[in-house]
Design a protein around this nucleic acid. Sequence first.
DNA 1: AAGGATGAGATTGAGAGTCA
DNA 2: TGACTCTCAATCTCATCCTT
Length: 303
Amino acid sequence: MIGIVLDNISRLDLNLLVTLDVLLDELNVTKAAKRLNLSQPSVSVQLAKLRDYFNDPLLVSNSRGMTPTLKAEQLRQPMKEAIAHLHEVVLPTAEFDPERAKQRWRIAAYDYGEATVMLPLLPALRAQAPLSELSIVQLPPTQIYEKAERGEIDLAINVVSNSHLNLHHRTLFSDQYVLAARKGHRLLNGPVSLDIFCQLEHVMVSPDGDGFWGETDEVLKALGLKRNVVLSVPHFLFLKAILETTDLVAMLPSRIAMMSDLIQIVSVPIQVPDFTISMLWHERVHRDPAHQWLRKQILLAVT
DNA sequence: AAGGATGAGATTGAGAGTCA
DNA sequence: TGACTCTCAATCTCATCCTT
């Protein structure tokens, strides 16, 4: 089996993968040739070899240029990753120069991570790496490993869970849930008993939008109690706005609650476990100087 | 007209053979 | 064993044809 694989690879000039990568970017043999510093006929011959190797036309002509085949589309991402790995292997590791670098980072973070990590990070990032770009995407925690492995994200800000065991991670900070409500709330002018806590109308965050059950409810269940959750929203920052303008209350991460002058924190007679926010990244970018620099900036921003 | 494909000839580099 | 030469395959460019 291994012999068959090696035979197949030995038939393939790895430079052809670089050519195919550029061809799929440009969808034009002449433009690809210019980028590769080759003549158009050379690239045409290389395309013919690729077609023979993959037994597929890869690019087909149409009235507006060339269109990639399904096979070419399927090859595109794994090929980019393979080329990136090859670069890591053969190129000497250069120092990262943030001032000159045109780096593009892709970070997965929900609004809590945006508010507590990305917001403090941005001023330093813009000042020190003015030519670089940052893209923040929202991603379910279960997809972080897969996307990081495929190179679709570089870093994630999240709670470490079982699905992240194969990723590197570094703890950023811990946070605790506190009872938050607007200042001047008519029922919160004194100590809050468990009975009152359960009678209050709660709003909670459920990023996937289908949850009326959280850590707080687990704690209450163990005490034989149940709170009154009337609203579930996908974002902490939307929840903050709700608390500022209604009599709803919420168990909110303290860092979010303290961001608003209109919200008060009320002590409650239950203890919900703290949670820890970490940054997570794949082995793929572990030794990359640009990514090492970014991770250092994040640590500096939150500590 | 623009862009891809192809044929002819030139160049390059690896491997084999020879010789001191 | 190292230096040199020869051969041949791979790959390049140029010119030109073909297709859309």
